[in-house]
């Protein structure tokens, strides 16, 4: 078996999910190569070459790949796919955007959000908002899959000595053009990689009121998440949504504040190690998954918690 992993990066540094995707690849077994497609991304390639267990780092450095647009990237991966039994990417909005195109171009299916490797052709993945876990066996010639970051332990970023080799630019597409990006800037830890997360829901009431959530998060050194209702209401930006159709998190500590605990929200956080719920409704379903539940008004309980930590 020979496996190709597509790296996730921002042209400057490698994203930590690449290391968890590599972990899934190493569990499948065989040689593992890493493809880095980007622009002026040599620093990423240098860093990638030291990752433990990577055989080759293949680099496509061209303006066509600067923003990882799906059309150009999938054509590139197709051209580099020869000889690989498996092609993996992280189940992020980037991986989910281009990898199904690669699968279709190869004439195979994609397995989405793989959470466990049972054999080279058999995998587990959550379905129905995580209310069921499917074991799926694939007869496709090439196994193409996105990997759920929270389900694997990252491989070591150092200790490896991979060779670096260039990959020719192919299939750059003019049909799709990057216009702009509005990225949320924050000094807080990144949500999917944080060891502690504090999330606020509709109960928080407004964007201004989210300051009580931020204050607690800063005291804990935590990332801040939100429910869909809080995002829809405009309290916080979309990149903070945790859930079935938002981000998946599995921190050491997850504090849900003013969140009722709909199945779609639970889908994104119920693998957290310790869950705390603060909600004024003692019947709220979030208490069914919480290790520690506090029935209280968040506007008194959260500031009190913040001040006493």
């Amino acid at each position: 078996m020979t496996i190709l992993v597509i790296a996730e990066h921002d042209n400057q540094s490698l994203k930590p999910v690449t290391l968890t995707t590599l972990a899934a690849a190493q569990q499948i077994g065989g040689d593992v190569d890493l493809l880095i497609a980007g622009h002026n991304c040599q620093a990423v390639a240098q860093a990638a070459a030291t990752i433990s267990g990577v055989r080759k780092v293949r680099v496509a450095d061209d303006a066509a790949y600067e923003h990882q647009l799906a059309e150009s990237l999938s054509n590139l991966v197709l051209s580099a796919a020869e000889g690989y039994s498996h092609i993996l990417a992280a189940a992020t909005t980037t991986g989910k955007n281009f990898l199904p195109r690669v699968a279709a171009l190869l004439g195979v299916n994609q397995l989405s959000e793989v959470s466990a490797v049972l054999a080279a052709d058999t995998f587990k993945r959550p379905i129905y908002a995580g209310n069921a876990i499917a074991t799926v066996k694939s007869a496709d010639a090439v196994k193409v899959m996105t990997v759920r970051g929270t389900s694997f332990e990252p491989v070591a970023a150092t200790g490896g000595t991979a060779t670096i080799e260039p990959v020719a630019v192919v299939g750059a597409s003019a049909a799709s053009r990057f216009v702009k990006e509005e990225l949320a800037v924050s000094d807080r830890p990144e949500l999917t990689a944080a060891s502690k997360v504090v999330s606020g829901g509709r109960g928080v009431g407004s964007g201004e009121n989210f300051s009580v959530i931020y204050a607690l998060a800063d005291k804990l050194g935590a990332a801040v998440g939100a429910s869909r209702a809080a995002v829809d209401a405009g309290f916080v930006p979309n990149d903070m949504q945790v859930g079935q159709t938002g981000k998946t998190v599995a921190p050491e500590l997850y504090v849900a504040v003013g969140i009722s605990g709909a199945i779609q929200h639970l889908a994104g956080m119920k693998d957290s190690k310790v869950i705390v719920a603060i909600n004024k409704d003692e019947e709220a379903p979030i208490f069914q998954v919480a290790d520690y539940g506090l029935v209280a008004d968040l506007f008194t309980a959260v500031p009190e918690l913040t001040s006493k930590l």
Partner: peptide, 23 residues
């Protein structure tokens, strides 16, 4: 090309407790 080998319920979380105060 995909065979559904089996479908399981997710791991159940152990029931937690309610605490009486922030302390």
């Amino acid at each position: 090309a995909l065979t559904l080998v089996k479908v399981e319920p997710p791991a159940e979380r152990q029931a937690g407790i309610k605490v009486g105060s922030v302390d």
